[in-house]
Nucleic acid binder design. Structure first.
Length: 769
DNA sequence: GAGCGATTAATTTTT
DNA sequence: TTAATCGCTC
């Protein structure tokens, strides 16, 4: 009767057919987790549950899209359209958009990505005259992010004893102030960062019981994918939303928890059984993906971790090929080896490009593989990295669109007010900012009714004209007009360099994507929101440009292990297995960090279906210079019996015998004569010496007087005592160059000495003569 | 104020 | 290696 149930094994079927009450599915790698989730949803719908009442949350857009598609296939109709399936962030953004005004946000609130957020933090640190070496934007951002993900707001942060101690100890006493300012500024800008989408969602449900009740009753069934990667905020939200029906189904694998840096805590999955009464637990332990060899290696590696839910992955698949470990001399050799091996496998075993994936720890590692693949004419696709939407020219264009939709967004106003250059300088902008903050107004409110600055007024008129268009024109027409009248497109068009051309094309591509968005017809029964605001919201959460028909393009895939989670490939290269790279240097200090790296390695191994190569290089270029690394400690955790020792692919260059692969670096690298210690010390000593010899006493920067006002350059005469904003106090020795372009020779004394200053540009205050 | 070369600092993973 | 900032010139 339910044919789709036939393809399930006993355990899978048990999970699908459990209808009401909390359910935890512990799903090992390759055990058919997505199949179970999608079949379960389809089954619920077959049994009459309204798709409108089902909420399914995933971590990536890719996973959400795949789930939706598979349900459609299972059901054979378009009922799936009404399901609420998406990433945590996108689903909450949608809900927040509906309820935003309750929280004092515009419904078209802007979503700030990490770069936007770091930019604001940078500004704040600068404004407070703090050292940006200590208050590094990335550090501050991560700390604020961690707080939000633990549901700690700025006020709670300030009074949290433990946190305060940490900040004192790390010499960052002003963290709480920065957090508070940052949070306020986002709010004032009508913007939320990624973490706010969770944090504000929590706040919304907390503060507005009627909103909570609405969604509690709406979501009768809640399903959560990758539960091991949820953080405290996500956990709390789910708990609230599910409290009425308690039909919560979580799927996860503690062995694949790899997002603790984003606040994820494995505790959520470990504790699930104690959170609810009568939790049904189903373990999926049969692996359908990998060969026995691959699975054996994976099991051996992960068994080195202490904290685990006990389970044993097994498979009926063939033993398959042994795993190949390859050592190369340099990262370039590593790239070359991989490209060679791909070619060879294609010849010998009839694989095509898309059967291969190269998985690495950090995005920076992609370079050598790209080069070698290109050299051998093997088509590839790079996933992740700086995405399309992070490119400067795209962000510039998006900044215009965002400002037009949400004028509270000071950050983006600042970005575009003088780009393309229209003669509105930093000082004019700063003047507005100071005045606005004094009067408790937003930047836009300050200038929208005239600013006393003709150029700013022109800018305001232009933005307003775009806003008028918003009423009658579609998103594409507005965007096109913005590109044209802001002269942004022209700016790129006039740049005839190769990069300029690329930028022009990227902006055109952005416009195309808006056009596509606008022209996608509404599905039956579903009226899609085609406003510019809706478009912006959607793309803000789209980090990967998930292009058309992923499956059909025949290319080798390059990505980080993190982005490979949930995917599988016939042939996998897990590369860069070196100490300080994988495991990363950042993780070496504590057991948890190291175990997470090991889980990451586990994830990379279990992506492979048929063949697996593990590679590492003796030395590689990092931050511009060659460094040597020991082989990763994880390699020692693989019993040699699973390894293929015969095949090296580069037998003349790379020594892949297990003996030398593990540890005794002296063996095979005679070409790099210098022992490790000497090698490491030379450059650092040299650097130090350079620093000492060139250490000039930098003059202390001049703090301009608080009442500093520049005087008219024409009034400055020989012999005047003057103050310069940067160089401090000095005396005019001489003036030359004629009235049109007078140049003064000024003696600023010991600190800065004698300088020639062009009076038309410099800001000088006359103190007397 | 703006544009351009030169120096220098920085690299974990992502929604 | 590359992105970002610095500092110089017009």
């Amino acid at each position: 009767m339910y044919r789709y149930l036939d393809g399930l094994n006993e355990k899978q079927r048990e999970a699908v057919e459990h209808l009401d009450g909390p359910l935890m599915i512990v799903a090992g790698a390759g055990s058919g987790k997505t199949k179970v989730l999608t079949t379960r949803i389809a089954h619920l719908m077959k049994l009459g549950v309204d798709p409108f009442n089902i909420l399914a949350l995933t971590f990536t857009n890719k996973a959400a899209a795949e789930m939706k598609e598979r349900i459609e296939v299972a059901l054979g109709n378009s009922e799936a359209k009404n399901l609420f399936i998406g990433t945590f962030h996108s689903v909450f953004a949608r809900i927040l958009r509906n309820e935003a005004t309750k929280m004092g946000y515009p419904s078209n609130f802007t979503i700030y990505d990490t770069d936007d957020a770091k930019g604001i933090i940078k500004d704040i640190v600068k404004e407070r005259n703090l050292d940006d070496k200590i208050y590094k934007p990335a550090y501050v951002y991560n700390r604020i992010s961690a707080a939000k993900n633990s549901l700690i707001d700025a006020a709670a942060y300030r009074v949290d004893h433990h946190i305060q101690q940490e900040d004192q100890r790390s010499n960052r006493p002003q963290m709480a102030d920065i957090y508070e300012t940052y949070a306020f500024r986002c709010y004032r800008n009508g913007a939320m960062d990624f973490d706010d989408l969770l944090f504000k969602m929590y706040e919304l449900l907390q503060k507005f019981p009627e909103v909570l009740a609405k969604y509690q009753h709406r979501f009768k069934y809640i399903l959560i994918d990758e539960y091991q990667d949820t953080n405290t905020a996500q956990y709390a939200i789910i708990k609230m939303l599910g409290a009425v029906h308690e039909n919560i189904c979580v799927v996860g694998d503690d062995a694949q928890s790899i997002y603790s840096f984003r606040g994820a805590t494995v505790q959520n999955i470990l504790q699930f059984q104690t959170d609810y009464d009568d939790v049904k637990v189903v373990k999926l332990e049969q692996n359908y993906r990998s060969t026995q060899s691959i699975l054996n290696v994976a099991n051996n590696v992960i068994s080195n971790n202490a904290n685990q839910i006990p389970k044993e992955l097994w498979t009926q698949n063939n033993i398959g090929e042994k795993i190949v470990i390859v050592r190369t001399m340099t990262d370039n050799d590593e790239g070359k080896f991989v490209a060679d091996a791909i070619k060879e496998q294609q010849m010998r075993n009839h694989y095509t490009n898309k059967d291969f994936a190269i998985l690495y720890r950090t995005n920076a590692q992609s370079r050598s593989f790209e080069e070698s693949l290109r050299r051998m004419n093997i088509p590839y696709k790079l996933y992740g990295g700086t995405s399309f939407y992070q490119r400067k020219e795209v962000k510039d264009m998006l900044a215009y669109l965002r400002v037009v939709v949400n004028t509270r967004d000071e950050e983006n106003i600042k970005r575009i007010i003088n780009y393309p250059a229209r003669g509105i300088g930093k000082s004019s902008v700063d003047k507005v900012i100071v005045a606005a903050h004094e009067q408790q107004k937003t930047f836009w409110e300050m200038i929208e009714h005239g600013s006393g600055n003709g150029k700013i007024d022109d800018f305001v008129m232009m933005i307003k004209s775009f806003q008028v268009m918003l009423q009658t024109k579609n998103a594409y027409d507005v965007a096109f007009a913005i590109g044209k009248h802001s002269k942004l497109v022209l700016e790129h068009y006039n740049d005839k360099t190769v990069e300029g051309l690329a930028r022009y094309e990227n902006v055109q591509e952005l416009l195309n994507s808006i056009k596509e968005f606008t022209e996608t017809p509404d599905e039956e029964g579903e009226l899609l929101d085609k406003s510019l605001g809706s478009y912006l919201q959607q793309i803000s959460l789209q980090t990967d440009t998930q292009n058309e028909d992923e499956e059909s393009i025949d290319v080798v895939k390059l990505m980080t292990i993190h982005s490979a989670k949930g995917l599988e490939f016939p042939c996998v290269f897990s590369v860069g297995l070196e100490e300080t790279l994988f495991p990363s240097a950042m993780s070496l200090y504590d057991r948890e960090g190291l175990e997470e790296e090991r889980r990451l390695f586990y994830v990379s191994i279990t992506r492979a279906k048929e063949r697996l190569w593990i590679t590492y290089a003796n030395s590689r270029y990092r931050f511009g210079s060659l460094v040597q690394n020991d082989p990763s400690r994880f390699l020692k955790e693989i019993p040699p019996m699973y390894l293929d020792l015969a095949f090296t692919g580069m037998s003349n260059k790379a020594d892949t015998s297990v003996g030398s692969a593990f540890g005794n670096r002296g063996g095979g690298n005679a070409g790099y004569g210098a022992p490790k210690d000497g090698f490491d010390k030379v450059p650092s000593l040299k650097k130090l010496a350079d620093k000492l010899s060139s250490a000039k006493q930098a003059p202390a920067p001049h703090q301009p007087s608080s009442d500093f006002v520049a005087d008219d350059a024409a009034r400055i005469m020989k012999g005047h005592k003057v103050e310069h904003q940067k160089f401090g106090f000095g005396q005019v020795m001489n003036i030359e160059g004629g009235a049109a372009n007078p140049i003064a020779t000024i003696d600023f004394g010991a600190g800065h000495g004698v300088k020639k200053i062009m009076l038309n540009y410099a800001k000088l205050r006359i103190l007397g003569d």
